[in-house]
């Protein structure tokens, strides 16, 4: 059977990304709001409670005034799953993505936090370019996720190449250590995305993608689900707490993605995110 080619105008990509940049920065998804509320209900430390209460007020103000939850409105990370029966028309897809970021960050009063050269460090003035991850899937749809990433937490992320013999305990220790090292710099309570397996770059990309997963859900793989729960428990036992000022809520969620790997390796990507874990998705 021959499949129909579907034409998608890149102008639609631009406007979708523009809107998602603004929406993601001014409000959190329902699951993240739920996690914060649960954290407040569970917190035992008075300082921790006070911090979480202020985070709740902060979200309320951001929503009401439509201003960013956090001044670090991030670098725009964009995941696109493109159906193989899609044909883009109307221009250059990469440029359309960047145009969406440019419009969103300019028209939405978001901060321009990107420099054009990592060493020369001149601000691009419009928060472009985005970091774009493309993947090809069956079908004729285009799924776009925009995840603005703040760098207080990004800076505390890492890849570790463990040995197969390190196993599950090795993974747990590596993640807990990364969280401890991040401490107050990453604006706890954090959300932690972990990628296990693949190669050096694959585990890092999975870790980033894990941050876009719903925190109300868990992995379908029973042993990974257990690992998500175990790591979260161990992180919260550190006592770092909200803002790193003490308490039982150091992290709100741990999500893990896995991929087959080499007989000689156990790569682990650990992407730390703060409580402002922003992402929006649309399907065109």
């Amino acid at each position: 059977m021959e499949s129909q080619i579907r034409s998608v105008d890149v102008a639609g990509v631009t406007s979708a990304i523009r809107d998602m940049c603004i929406r993601a920065n001014c409000g959190l998804a329902k699951d993240m709001q739920d996690r914060l509320q649960e954290a407040l209900a569970r917190e035992t430390s008075p300082v921790g409670k006070s911090v979480l209460t202020q985070l709740e007020q902060n979200l309320e103000i951001a929503g009401k005034e439509q201003i960013p939850i956090c001044q670090d409105t991030g670098m725009a990370v964009v995941f696109m799953e493109i159906g193989q029966d899609v044909h883009f028309v109307g221009g250059d897809l990469n440029e359309a993505v960047n145009e969406g970021v440019r419009q969103g960050y300019t028209e939405g009063y978001l901060r321009k936090s990107v420099v054009s050269d990592p060493l020369l460090r001149k601000n691009t003035g419009d928060n472009t370019p985005a970091v774009l991850h493309l993947s090809m899937v069956p079908g004729d749809k285009v799924k776009i996720t925009v995840a603005p990433k703040g760098f207080g937490s990004e800076n505390m992320s890492r890849v570790v190449m463990l040995k197969p013999a390190d196993g599950e305990e090795g993974v747990i220790d590596a993640v807990v250590q990364a969280v401890k090292d991040a401490g107050p710099n990453a604006c706890p309570p954090m959300v932690v995305g972990v990628g296990i397996g693949g190669t050096f770059e694959k585990c890092a990309e999975m870790a980033k993608q894990a941050l876009t997963l719903n925190t109300s859900e868990h992995s379908d793989l029973p042993h990974i689900r257990k690992l998500e729960e175990e790591i979260l428990k161990r992180i919260n036992r550190t006592g770092l707490g909200p803002a790193g000022l003490g308490g039982v809520n150091t992290a709100l969620s741990v999500r893990i993605l896995t991929y087959p790997t080499h007989i000689a390796g156990l790569p682990v990507g650990i992407n730390i995110c703060c409580h402002v874990n922003r992402h929006e998705t649309v399907v065109l």
Partner: peptide
Amino acid sequence: FAAIGGAGALLSH
């Protein structure tokens, strides 16, 4: 001093 990270909307007030 530390101010609360990620509370930029509230602090703006």
